[in-house]
């Protein structure tokens, strides 16, 4: 499998079928001379690290724990196809932190939301 092409930057879907972000990074684990995928990373400052290290480091300092990405262990990856299906509840992961914040503080406060 080509990780870069088939997993990285794919749409991540949670157990309830909700879009929960993109696969922004992949964590590899070295065992002896073999590398294997340990986890997929969604959200947080991961994307920034791929764009500009200085900017990412600055954002990480500013945001503190707020910018921490969500790591999904490889065993919770259900299926890789058009998108990447994960056996997690997006609502309970930090990947949904900003979605929740916007919902509770902005959009949810407008009548009819």
């Amino acid at each position: 499998m080509q990780l870069g092409r088939e997993v990285l930057d794919q749409q991540a879907i949670d157990a309830g079928g909700r879009q929960m972000g993109k696969v922004d990074g992949i964590v590899l684990e070295l065992r002896g001379d073999q590398a294997r995928v340990a986890a997929l990373v969604v959200g947080g400052t991961t994307l920034l690290w791929r764009l500009h290290a200085g900017l990412a480091a600055w954002a990480e300092r500013r945001l503190g724990g707020e910018g921490a990405p969500t790591r999904i262990p490889w065993r919770q990856v259900v299926k890789i196809g058009i998108d990447v299906k994960l056996d997690v509840e997006a609502e309970r992961t930090p990947a949904f932190r900003w979605e929740r914040w916007v919902r509770d503080h902005v959009i949810g406060r407008i009548p009819g939301a």
Binding site: Q19, M20, V102, I107, I110, A113
Partner: peptide
């Protein structure tokens, strides 16, 4: 990769609506 869809209620796709 945020939740999106004009057929969802605004609060179900908060960032999209934002």
């Amino acid at each position: 990769g945020w939740r999106w869809g004009e057929n969802l209620r605004p609060r179900e796709a908060a960032r999209f609506t934002l």
